[in-house]
């Protein structure tokens, strides 16, 4: 099963390598990983998407918790939550293609953020599924370059991950 795990950790050099190291050492997989500072400068927040059965996820969270740099973590997929990923994509667009691409961008509520006479750079935010669907709608042959940010997530309602 796909899980989104959010981790608050000490904003120390080496902390990230410990988390990533844990995953390779124990053979867990990481689908996406994002990390950035938080409002508290001593902490950074790491969000990762991983896939595994309940037993594996339990082991992952236990072992993450065991890392000294990890302050707190939550499996967002255990409750209702919001997830977003940002996509930047360069698309071939000339002649009649230009309108077609624009229509797709509108449907997916994306934005064209850069243009030349032969291409658009498009930005789309949403769930990973939505981004997958958008890329599929564009069609492989028109795509020149894809960058995805990896998933960020936050719980719905008043629940917060803080110390």
């Amino acid at each position: 099963m796909r899980r989104i795990i959010s981790v608050l950790m000490e904003n120390e050099p080496g902390a990230l390598s410990r988390v990533v190291g844990l995953f390779s050492q124990r053979g867990y997989n990481i689908e996406t990983l994002t990390v950035a500072p938080t409002e508290d400068e001593t902490l950074s927040r790491l969000t990762m998407v991983t896939i595994g059965d309940d037993h594996k996820i339990e082991q992952i969270t236990k072992n993450l918790n065991k890392l000294i740099d990890v302050v707190k973590l939550v499996d967002l997929t255990e409750g209702s939550h919001i997830e977003r990923e940002l996509l930047l994509v360069k698309v071939r667009a000339s002649g009649a293609q230009r309108d077609e691409v624009k229509r797709s961008v509108d449907i997916f509520r994306g934005q064209i953020v850069d243009v030349t006479s032969n291409m658009y750079t498009v930005q789309v935010a949403g769930t990973s599924d939505k981004l997958d669907a958008f890329l599929q709608a564009l069609g492989e042959h028109t795509i020149m370059e894809v960058v995805r940010s990896g998933v960020s997530g936050i719980a719905r309602g008043e629940k917060v991950l803080s110390i």
Binding site: H55, E58, Q59, K62, N63, N65, K66
Partner: peptide, 11 residues
């Protein structure tokens, strides 16, 4: 004393 040791190989 280590929660990660519990139910790791045998539930």
């Amino acid at each position: 004393v280590d929660p990660a040791s519990i139910s790791k190989t045998i539930v």
